[in-house]
Design a protein around this nucleic acid. Structure first.
Lengths: 342, 342
DNA sequence: TGTTGGATGTTAAACGTTTTACATTATCTC
DNA sequence: GAGATAATGTAAAACGTTTAACATCCAACA
């Protein structure tokens, strides 16, 4: 059986193909009677309109592409889940653009929007995947694009994320308020804007508290469990051990904590640990993790809504959507133990 | 600037559109000289071929859809990450079909393959999203489809997953070997084939060991942290408390462990816990989780490879791809403490 | 009775490619 | 130099829709 199309339905129902099309997309343009006739014919043979042909004609693919570093990261997956959900609710599908941090793949996925395969892009990266200016694309002829969690350097693009600077300040202050001075830092990939800003926030908080940052206690890592693990190992070998560790993600924090435990350190008795993100696991681990919560679902939803509006031609009323973060004090942080330096 | 197409490039390079097309898809069909001319023209204006038109003409979308219960589930996300990776390596994109268990959405996503939007389906569900037989689709006119982790009931479809029955036997035997008799069970959604088979495996192992299953100790839950949490709460209220809990996923297990800890139970001192999946976190939690490891990446890779072969017209040499599972004994399980019933 | 206009249906031109079949030219063989 | 063959290019027909423009019919209205 050759693939059946609108033509076959038209023949079967004894009408023109235009009528069939109308019966589907534009009831009201066709009498109730013919509409039913068409639908019946379609139903009988299990007709499914060809989406590609439709998209080609209408220049709308009905897809968006989510460019994201790693679907298997718990923070990422929470966001993409929300993206998918709100896209679906508005009739869009989402193409998964897992880049593993590769700029090459970021560009490949972004290109889908230029080839008609996607109507817009949610970009969770700090890199612009298009050449802007210099005889190439102009900034305002980009495909609809919203920047999530990271900042690609163009204020003309809507972006949504938390205030990383302040969030880091809050995290640091929490530790400082508990009396910690020897605070270690484990960052994510320092190419990301999120890590850079958090680092700035941390520095500011420390400066404001009059505490000097011990460079040997800041390790430039990556946003993974393994990153946290490696960081903790290196930290523990320092002569001057930290009394607290501020991690730029919960996965990092959990990686750290595993090493600390393995080495016999008590968290938070010996060392306090604070994370970032508030992934679902954070409150289930032992001890429950103190963290800076990010509203992952809201971020995803907002990204998607913004993008779909953009696709529909609605300019967003504001470009910077800063979502609220929140310090969640659980049990992985505690006042510094004065006698610890024994 | 109107969207530029092959026609514009043809004009710009002074050749026919056929030649432009050949220059891209079929070099060799065109002289090196003209090819360069075309490429130069295309490059100059940043031409990107319209994928939809191409797909329409060739009847190949270059997409597959991954129908999966929940991207934010750690086991799922590991699989889908591998799917994306291998699909990408073979020039395919993946559409994200997060269903949250809804049959409706499963059908919607599956329909993409009938509308030309996707060339094939990876179905991680036990439900067939098409009407088979009864005047409707025949089983062998389904779109290319491979069944991952669950079994939709058709032996004609390739499927890949572990041997859930044996895996559960192994898990149960581990506990039994440690001397446990009061073994609780926390299942996932019992509509899934994975949970049903694991339950069968558990029953078999218990029967073989001559241990009677205490019905009050089996709770029918769902594959989530919350599911584990709720299950543990209900379990702890039983008069006859379990000395071990077998959970059908690591997330369930971690949910359980959090409750146990909160209530002052030591794992594994008071109660042993074993999970399923070996999600990345499993070895990082306290205590590191004993679990039945599933090769998530291999499962994803195999699903994708199988599907792409199917799309290319290669019949798989075998239909059942059972991937190896492995009992990973870590520290959440221990011999039963005889004096515990005090 | 002629005019207007709404309701319903159809024709045909797009949308931007790929690909078959054919045309032209160049190269080779004898 | 004839004929065959290879190399290169092109015209035009698809692919399966949507949609603007037009046609027809009929009721309503003056």
């Amino acid at each position: 059986m050759a693939k059946i199309g609108i033509k076959d339905i038209a023949a079967k129902a004894g009408v023109s193909i235009a009528t069939v099309s109308h019966a589907f997309r534009n009831p009201g343009r066709v009498s109730e009677q013919t509409r039913r006739k068409v639908l019946a014919a379609a139903d009988e043979v299990g007709y499914a309109p060809n989406r590609l042909a439709r998209s080609l004609r209408t220049a709308r693919s009905g897809c968006i592409v989510a460019i994201i570093p790693d679907v298997a990261d718990n923070h990422n997956s929470g966001i993409i889940k929300a993206i998918e959900k709100t896209a679906h609710a508005r009739g869009y599908s989402v193409l998964l653009g897992d880049t593993q941090g590769s700029p090459q793949r970021e560009r490949e996925f972004a290109a889908m929007a230029r080839s008609g395969q996607a109507d817009g892009i949610i970009l969770m990266s700090h890199r612009m995947p298009f050449r802007i200016g210099e005889g190439q694309l102009d900034i305002d002829e980009l495909p609809p694009l919203v920047n999530g969690c990271e900042f690609a350097g163009y204020d003309e693009l809507p972006m949504v994320g938390i205030d990383d600077f302040t969030a880091a300040v809050d995290a640091a202050n929490h530790l400082i308020d508990l009396g910690h001075k020897d605070i270690a830092l484990v960052t994510g990939d320092m190419a990301t804007t999120s890590s850079r800003r958090r680092l700035d926030g941390f520095s500011r908080a420390m400066a404001d508290a009059g505490i000097e940052i011990n460079d040997r206690l800041v390790v430039y890592g990556e946003y993974t469990l393994g990153g946290g693990e490696a960081a903790a190992r290196s930290l523990l070998m320092e002569k001057q051990r930290p009394s607290a560790i501020l991690c730029f993600s919960d996965e990092i924090a959990l990686g750290c904590m595993a090493v600390l435990r393995e080495r016999g350190f008590d968290v938070p008795g010996d060392i306090s640990v604070i994370g970032f993100d508030n992934i679902p696991f954070a409150r289930y681990v032992a001890p429950p993790l103190t963290t800076i919560a990010q509203p992952a679902a809201d971020i995803g939803t907002t990204c998607a809504a913004l993008l779909l509006d953009l696709i529909d031609g609605k300019r967003p009323d504001k470009m910077r959507h800063v979502m609220p973060h929140e310090l969640l004090v659980r049990e992985s942080t505690a006042p510094v133990f004065d006698g610890r330096r024994t």
